[in-house]
Design a protein around this nucleic acid. Structure first.
Lengths: 247, 247
DNA sequence: CGGGTCATTGAGTCAGCTCAAGGCTCGTGG
DNA sequence: CCACGAGCCTTGAGCTGACTCAATGACCCG
């Protein structure tokens, strides 16, 4: 718990508005003028930190807000008809969650913190009003939803066409790239999720996840110590993820 | 070809505006007042019928419009990094395609007609302007994108957690339900796509699709003649799709 | 130090894959 | 009118990647 509280993402916590947030070149405010950012800022509610395992919202809850991840990491879980759970995404700082609730006015997913995290709550009715006034914000929000669709479709392809090695390699590359975008190292990072979460997300068993990660380690492509990953051979990892032959 | 041209969906062709279109309780105009529907109608462009195999838009093309399927059926295809194709959706009348292009301002998918079809083109810049004026339309479009996300996440779950029988059963039920929504029979319909399309979409080989469909036929759950499907035991199909045990 | 959670490793099984052969349907051309 | 080729689908036989089951290891916390 002490380790979680000291996680490196937490130094963005003292930020109290969007215009000074170091994530504002990635998050919802992109392409907004300073005065428009301030308008957005007025409707954003910053909550207290949430602990590992806490929910941001849960399936069935009335849809009121979307949330920007400010620090930490969040997983979203969809419940299937037969009572199983499917992790539909891992979300890192600057990424937006909660858009699943729009269609039916109730969240279809549950969002759970993977470690101590902070989120900015954005009441959707206010965001809608503001979007009608600020064309750039409307466009930006459409784009965010479209990005979500594109991400989901990439996962669909991964699950439909790729073997275990390719799925794991792709996940590592995705996290690496997103960290890099936020100004962190692309080659070295902590995985905020458990092996079981990875398996659930990628449609694999925990044993297979463990074996594949072990193999990547043995072949010298990554260094691995529990959740600490260091990519030693980025090119090899890429060619593994994107090679068309399954063997 | 003659058969395609006489396909049952085509009698919606003579419609020339949204307010009299029999799909307007399902399509984009939902929840709009009559006068607002007319405003929407002014920006909608109705094109000529497109033939089987024709593209509505293709990957890489600049994003300009979204499209409502008016008749026929459309598949959307994403190209993977390694040159494979992944079908990401089958779209029936009243459903909207093209929203994949918003994030990057270029389409990431290619949309191909599965049979002779007609689409309504909706230029996005005009739709954006109108959305800012009509809160209901803005909300409606957000909802459509959210619905798309929800659909994609259901497919993710299907691919990640369900076996071949469950995947096929779920697809049949989905098409059945969507036909029913449009006032067509839930129990009897033509599959507009090939076995190979089904396999691609569901992450299965064509042989497995064929075997599973044959098995559903033999066990008396469906009647099957090429692409003509009749669901004989809806309850059995549902319990097959949603049972939690894989065996 | 004991109990719980999470991860690793091994051995055997099986669902869905690959490879291969053959059938059905439709359009074209002799 | 029929023969033929091209697509699409079906069916069979055998293989294999990922699963299941099982045991053990590593770590944390009380």
């Amino acid at each position: 718990m002490a380790i979680q509280a000291n996680s490196p993402q937490c130094h963005s916590m003292p930020q109290t508005n969007c215009s000074t947030c170091r994530l504002n070149t990635l998050c919802l405010p992109i392409s907004l003028e300073l005065q428009d950012i301030n308008k957005l800022d007025e409707i954003v509610q910053r909550g207290r930190p949430i602990q590992k395992g806490d929910r941001v919202y849960h399936a069935g809850e009335k849809f009121r807000s979307v949330y920007a991840v400010r620090s930490g990491a969040i997983k979203t879980i969809a419940n299937t008809q037969d009572g199983q759970e499917q992790i539909t995404g891992f979300y890192l700082p600057s990424e937006i969650i909660g858009m699943d609730g729009l269609a039916t006015n109730a969240h279809s997913n549950t969002a759970v913190a993977l470690e101590t995290s902070a989120v900015c709550e954005i009441p959707f009715s206010r965001l809608e009003e503001l979007s009608a006034q600020l064309p750039n914000l409307q466009r930006r929000f459409f784009q965010l939803m479209s990005k979500e669709i594109a991400n989901d479709q990439q996962l669909i392809t991964l699950l439909s066409k790729n073997n275990a090695d390719q799925r794991i390699a792709s996940l590592l590359l995705s996290i690496s790239a997103r960290n890099h975008n936020r100004g962190l190292a692309a080659e070295e990072f902590y995985l905020p999720m458990s092996r079981s979460d990875i398996g659930n997300y990628l449609g694999l068993t925990i044993e297979t996840v463990s074996r594949v990660m072990g193999r990547l380690h043995k072949t010298g492509i990554i260094e691995l110590d529990k959740k600490h990953v260091k990519i030693l051979d980025m090119a090899a990892l890429r060619s593994l993820a994107f090679s068309s032959d399954k063997h």
